[in-house]
């Protein structure tokens, strides 16, 4: 599947011009197995950055604009995944079996995605989704947003720690804290809900946690080096490099993001075979978007 968008042409041009390194040409990410946990990695990065720098509005990097994940067919979590798979994660036997069954089921036409219930993607799947994004940078917090159901990740950079364990519970976007290492935002995220990296990608548990290093590598590209830790599912941490491309340029310079609700027009259902189908207009159970929640419209 090709998640095409009109920014794709610009992306192709960037690749052709060599301005943007493609995933296959990018430098390989650093080794991912040198830390025992995501927290150990985050702590090590923070120590290396001497605790991180407090930013003011004057010295924050400019991440303004509208961005979109680079266009990769099938939305694999790892852009370096070979075309058609398999995923590059090293999975435990249980999660390898789950993954292989999911792919086999999809190939025989049986596929369901909880996103079709109009639930959020959540982290770390959030990283893989298409759709428009904005990154709002302030001294004490960074908001990482996507238009898809207006999902917002709040990264606290004011020095606070994570939510205490006795208050924690699984969250769609998890609980994120971070610090600035120069113009690189280093983020630790935990307390996420179990889910899947993408439809034809592996699953993750609610023990998943991540370390991200996010920076603007050129005027059109924000890079996010992500390391995922999830001991029940991953034999070793899974480190990938994602790129988000600026799309509000040229003919699209006035592009804007509008809030949208997935329930506005969702007539997707799981049928008796467990796969995805629709209720069509006029059929029993159809929710007509022209009248749903609109008492003044008959």
């Amino acid at each position: 599947m090709i998640p095409f968008n009109v920014g794709g042409a610009a992306l192709v041009a960037l690749i052709a011009s060599g301005v943007l390194a493609t995933s296959s040409n990018a430098a390989p990410p650093p080794g991912a197995a040198e830390y025992a946990s995501s927290w150990a990695e985050f702590q090590a990065l923070r120590a290396k950055a001497h605790g991180g720098q407090k930013k003011t509005f004057a010295d924050l990097p400019d991440w303004s604009g509208i961005w979109e994940r680079e266009v990769i067919p099938g939305y694999p979590f790892d852009p370096n995944q070979p075309k058609g798979g398999p995923a590059t994660a090293v999975l435990t036997p249980e999660f390898q079996a789950r993954y292989e069954k999911k792919v086999a089921d999809a190939k025989r036409g049986v596929e369901w995605d909880n996103l079709s219930y109009c639930l959020p993607a959540g982290m770390p799947r959030w990283l893989t989704e298409p759709r428009l994004r904005e990154f709002i940078v302030r001294p004490e917090t960074v908001w990482l947003t996507t238009e898809q159901q207006s999902e917002v990740r709040r990264v606290y950079t004011d020095g606070r720690g994570h939510v205490p364990d006795d208050e924690a519970f699984p969250l769609w976007e998890g609980d994120s804290i971070g610090f600035w290492d120069g113009d690189t935002l280093v983020v630790h995220t935990k307390n996420m809900r179990a889910g899947q990296y993408q439809r034809r990608q592996p699953d993750y548990t609610d023990q998943v946690s991540t370390v991200e290093r996010i920076r603007k590598i050129d005027a059109q590209t924000i890079e996010d080096i992500v390391t995922v830790y999830d001991p029940p599912a991953l034999v070793k941490p899974w480190r990938v490099v994602n790129h988000y491309i600026k799309v509000d340029e040229g003919a699209q310079k006035d592009l804007r993001i509008n809030m949208w609700s997935c329930n506005e027009n969702n007539n997707v259902v799981k049928d008796e075979s467990g796969t995805t189908n629709f209720i069509l207009p006029g059929e029993a159970g159809y929710k007509n978007p022209s009248t749903l929640g609109r008492p003044l419209v008959q």
Partner: peptide, 11 residues
Amino acid sequence: GAALAHHSGAM
């Protein structure tokens, strides 16, 4: 099946 991000294209 392009850009059908919120559901499978299995149908």
